[in-house]
Design a protein around this nucleic acid. Structure first.
Lengths: 231, 231
DNA sequence: TAAATGCCATGATAAATATCATATCTAGGA
DNA sequence: TCCTAGATATGATATTTATCATGGCATTTA
């Protein structure tokens, strides 16, 4: 992890309008004083389950995974966060320590705002509070929704689901490089690594995807959609 | 559904201190004007997926289930809400329509505060906003946590989990009456109705629970704990 | 009262999935 | 450079779970 020099003010930050629409100049200056940009290399741990929460974190660049490790069983990936997602989201208002781990899947830049400063502004700016609540709710809803969706599918449907997830929600293209290993896919969609590999092979043999290592190309997205829908 | 007469002010409501610690008298009066208590009989639907959200709802008395119905597959129960839980929670700040259904498992009293009024107070009272966010986060965290926990267990572990859930979190007793059918248990912990019945029978034969219809008595809670932990 | 419906119950069987074994390939470290 | 650990790959087998069939029981409805 590397702390970037604190050159940029939040006021000039291209993300502030997307994320923090309703803030005054004073509030943005206040955040500027209490923020820090952090850079993480691929594979680095950003936060750990059980560690105290001291800041509000959101992703500026890169890709991270939120995951849980439970003794004696495999780890489970809760979700993948992309730029502009809040990554210290779950737990931040409900717990003093993180309830899950966060690790960088790519080189990543995180903006870290000191928690007290963040809460102070929420407390004084109602519309901002509502905005954060709305974004928070959306993220929680998405996680819960996709958990239930994955659970009612069979293995082929789950693989179809995750391929479409990367294609539609992360890369916006039929062709992309998987940011995670087969094992991590397994941890994300509740199946074994062997079966992830097996079913990706099936899809390749059926000619609905091209696979070369981590490089994926969806040849027949419509068929993948229908496999996903059927479950 | 029956609308109760609006006799009680929020100021005198026994729940207000538990739920809404930081409100001024004026704000409580404001809520009194914009609230309505609703009574639902067991089995009644409180809100439906897709219906517009017009109020903030919380449970005063009774027990409800939050569930999703998806065409062509069984419904899935997301969670069970008990008194003081927010039931219009998910979606309320992120969507204009409900993302799931809510139905009463017992005779139930719901307090309904008009959404605009609720948002207005959040916007003007920062500590209250933080309080609501904290409670919201906790509920979301619990749902997500238990989803992941259920998913890494085998059937026996799931049954143990749900027995302990009712015992520890709902009834606070080793002896209780199940508020839901075997089919609903199945919808809640991701298994088939037959297997719920089968495994409850196994537990009965193994003498770790007494079962008489919906009446349950945990004979050996420690063994149930260990079955739950092992998965 | 009778019929019907839904819930509880159990067994037999089929299907889905995990586990185990093994092999190849690759990337990173000594 | 070689060596090792981990990722990918595939087959055989075992385990877990779902499905199907059937019946009893209770509760609602005609």
């Amino acid at each position: 992890m590397r702390e970037l020099e604190n050159l940029n003010s939040c006021k000039s930050c291209v993300y502030n309008k997307l994320l923090f629409g309703g803030l005054t100049d004073e509030e943005l200056d206040f955040f500027t004083e209490h923020k820090q940009e952090l850079e993480f290399k691929k594979g680095e741990i950003i936060s750990k389950e059980g560690a105290p929460i001291t800041s509000f974190l959101y992703l500026k660049e890169g890709l991270v995974k939120l995951y849980k490790e439970s003794p004696g069983s495999k780890s489970q990936i809760i979700s993948i966060a992309k730029p502009l997602d809040f990554i210290s989201l779950l737990s931040i208002f409900s717990n003093s320590t993180y309830k899950y781990n966060v690790a960088a899947l790519e080189d990543t830049v995180v903006c870290s705002i000191h928690l007290d400063a963040f809460k102070k502004v929420i407390g004084q700016n109602g519309p901002f509070a509502l905005e954060i609540m709305s974004k928070m709710s959306k993220m929680y809803d998405d996680i819960i929704e996709s958990r239930f969706e994955i659970n009612r599918k069979h293995l082929r449907g789950r693989i179809a689901f995750i391929l479409l997830y990367f294609s539609n929600h992360i890369y916006h293209s039929d062709e992309f490089e998987l940011p995670i290993s087969r094992r991590e896919i397994a941890e994300l969609i509740e199946m074994t690594t062997e079966n992830v590999i097996r079913i990706l092979s099936e899809f390749r043999k059926d000619n609905i995807v091209q696979i070369d290592g981590k490089n994926i190309k969806l040849i027949e997205p419509e068929r993948i959609e229908s496999i996903c829908k059927l479950g």
